[in-house]
Nucleic acid binder design. Structure first.
Lengths: 137, 137
DNA sequence: GTAATATATGTATAGATGTTCATATATAAA
DNA sequence: TTTATATATGAACATCTATACATATATTAC
C-alpha cells in the first residue's frame, strides 16, 4: 500500500488554512489506528470474502461446501479462510478430516449487515461499478 | 481482483453436505450485491482514505490542507479525492481556485464510526498489521 | 501397512492499487 | 497579457492481492 515511503517533512504545498489544519490534526486518527481500521475494512473489500463471511454468519460450513457455494477452488477458499482465521474473523472445529468453519467476530458480521443496508438503500445510486459509470471518473 | 475468471461449472471438490449448501445458496448474496458491498468497504480499506474521510466528517477542508494533514503529496490526495468523488463519498464546493471538500455520504461515515468502535474495543487483540504479524499471508 | 480424501500450503501470475513526478487546467493577481 | 498558484490528470512504478495449479499433511477406510 505504500510503495515508496517518502512522507516529506510536512508537505509539498503550502497550507492555506494552518489553523484549521492544526485543529484537524488534533482529532486526526493516529496512523496506527487508521491502519487497523483499514485492515478491518479490507476483510470485506473482496466479494468472495463478503460471501464467505455472510454465509458463515448464518451457519457453519465445511471448506468443500464453501467452495461449492462460492464456486471457487478448494485451495482458493482455503487461502481466504486462512486470512480470515489470522484476523480472528472465523474459527473452525475439526471433525475427523472435515473442518467446519464459523464466524468468530460479531463486529465484522455487524459491519457487513450495516453495509448491506446501505447498499440496498442506495440501490444502485451510489457505489455501483457495473452499468452506471460510477461517477465522474 | 479476479485475474483468471475460471469459475468451474460447480467446483473441483465434492460436496459433503449438499442440502446445507443448497440452503446456504438460497440466502447467498448475489455476486453483484457482493461486489457492491465490497466496493463500499474498499473505500475504507486504505489508511490514507480512512484519515481523509474521518477528517472530512468533522469539517470541510481544501486539498492542500488535506495534503498537509495526512502528510502526502497534493497529487496523491487529489487522486484519492477523485476516487471518493466518483463513489459519491465526498463532494466539494469551489471558491476561486480553492476546492473545499466535505463528506457526502452518511453511510460511509457511519461505517467508519462503527469500525472505529470495534478497533478501540479490540484494542490490538484482533486486526493489527503492526507488531503482530497480522496473518500468515 | 496402503489407499482415499479433506484440508492446508508453496509457488506462480495476472491484475489492481497507492504513490510519485511531471504537467495540464483553471482562476486570480499584477 | 503575463505570472502565480490551487487543483486535476497522465504516466510510471513498486507493491499487494486473488486466484489457480501442484503438492504436502492429516485422518479415515481398507
Amino acid at each position: 500500500m505504500a510503495p515508496r515511503i517518502v512522507q516529506p517533512d510536512s508537505c509539498d504545498v503550502p497550507c492555506l488554512h494552518p489553523e484549521t489544519v492544526l485543529a484537524a490534526r488534533a482529532t486526526l486518527l493516529p496512523l496506527a489506528e487508521a491502519q487497523d481500521l483499514a485492515a478491518i475494512f479490507s476483510v470485506l473489500a473482496d466479494p468472495t470474502r463478503v460471501r464467505i463471511v455472510q454465509a458463515l454468519a448464518e451457519r457453519e460450513l465445511c471448506v468443500c461446501d464453501l467452495a461449492n457455494l462460492v464456486g471457487m477452488r478448494q485451495s482458493t477458499v482455503s487461502h481466504q479462510l486462512r486470512l480470515l482465521r489470522a484476523l480472528r474473523i472465523v474459527r473452525f472445529r475439526k471433525e475427523g478430516r472435515v473442518a467446519y468453519y464459523m464466524l468468530d467476530d460479531a463486529h465484522v458480521g455487524a459491519l457487513l449487515t450495516q453495509g448491506l443496508e446501505h447498499v440496498r438503500e442506495a440501490a444502485g445510486a451510489t457505489a455501483h461499478g457495473r452499468t452506471e459509470q460510477a461517477g465522474a471518473a
